[in-house]
Amino acid sequence: MTIDSHQHFWKYNPVNHGWINDEMQNIRRDFLPDQLGPLLREHHIDGCVTVQVDQTEDETMFMLSLAERYDFIRGVVGWIDLRSPDLEERLQHFRQFPRLKGFRHIVQGEPKGFLADRKFIEGVNKLARYNFTYDLLIYHHQLEEALAFVRQVPDVKIVVDHIAKPSIRTGEKTHWELNMAALATFKNVYCKVSGMVTEARWKDWKQEDFNPYLDEVFETFGTSRVMYGSDWPVCLVAASYGEQLAIVQQYIAALSESEKKLVLGENAKTFYNL
């Protein structure tokens, strides 16, 4: 099974999607399953995991409604208020949806210290009881906080989105590299090779820009804890679906067939219980 472990759908709204700035005008429109389905078929991808953009429970229900209509949406990563006093009740409610696999919070947009919030940590820990996963969306400068956070959620399956968004456009990786190596020592933590083109020079990237970062990810996490994701349609500001996929395919070309299958789908299947 080949899986795109990270993509998004939205009905564009300039208020809800204010993060789509003028430089990203080509994604200021709706992106829905009828547009993604042909791309998955073209590239021989069996299914996808769709991930929240808005931080509302309505967003979670929107994605679940799409998953009911489109079989290729194998899993949903929604949003829930992980600091809410009603969290247990909400998790009980959401466990009825088999396509709902986990949750994410946009930590990259939060102030310093957010990952140390006791209520947030307690909320993430509750996910394990319901077999829900947690997607960790951070920038590279938040990795030290992420390390302290991960130490406190040992029973939760966590995946780092977009290789923690290193500064590929500048080539800086020393602190990112050290912290990613430390993060990889936690066996409950996986890593998505996704979202890389948007951290590079959008109009002037090349394969060689990504290889040092991919070297570190594969060396530390190994082929059993790395999964491919497109970050479509966000990737379109810097690359077509095929171009961003080719970066990963070229990098793993020398791996065994069994290792390629792990990276391109089997790890996502295991992590999200697809």
Rank of each mutant, 00 (worst) to 15 (best):
E57I: 03
E57K: 08
E59C: 05
E59T: 06
T60H: 04
T60Q: 07
T60P: 11
M61F: 11
F62H: 07
F62Q: 09
F62V: 02
F62D: 11
M63V: 04
M63R: 11
M63N: 14
M63P: 10
M63A: 07
M63L: 15
L64W: 11
L64P: 15
S65R: 14
S65I: 08
L66Q: 12
L66N: 05
A67Y: 04
E68A: 14
E68F: 01
R69W: 00
R69V: 13
Y70P: 03
Y70K: 14
D71G: 10
D71C: 04
F72H: 11
F72C: 12
I73G: 15
I73H: 11
I73C: 13
R74Q: 10
G75C: 06
G75S: 12
G75E: 00
V76T: 04
V76W: 03
V77N: 02
V77K: 00
V77I: 13
V77E: 01
G78K: 03
W79Q: 05
W79L: 01
W79C: 02
I80D: 03
I80K: 00
D81N: 13
D81T: 03
L82K: 08
L82T: 09
L82H: 08
R83E: 10
R83L: 04
R83P: 00
R83W: 01
P85R: 02
P85K: 09
P85A: 11
P85D: 05
P85G: 06
L87H: 10
L87Y: 06
L87N: 12
E88R: 04
E88N: 12
E89A: 15
E89S: 14
R90I: 05
R90N: 13
L91K: 12
L91I: 12
L91F: 10
H93E: 15
H93R: 15
F94I: 00
R95F: 03
R95D: 11
R95Y: 03
R95M: 12
Q96S: 12
Q96H: 12
F97S: 07
F97D: 09
R99Y: 00
R99H: 07
R99T: 07
L100P: 15
L100C: 06
L100G: 11
K101G: 10
G102M: 03
F103S: 10
R104E: 14
H105T: 14
V107R: 05
V107C: 02
V107I: 15
V107T: 13
Q108D: 09
Q108W: 13
Q108H: 14
G109R: 10
E110K: 13
P111S: 11
G113Q: 04
F114P: 01
L115A: 08
L115Q: 02
L115N: 02
A116L: 13
A116H: 12
D117H: 14
D117R: 14
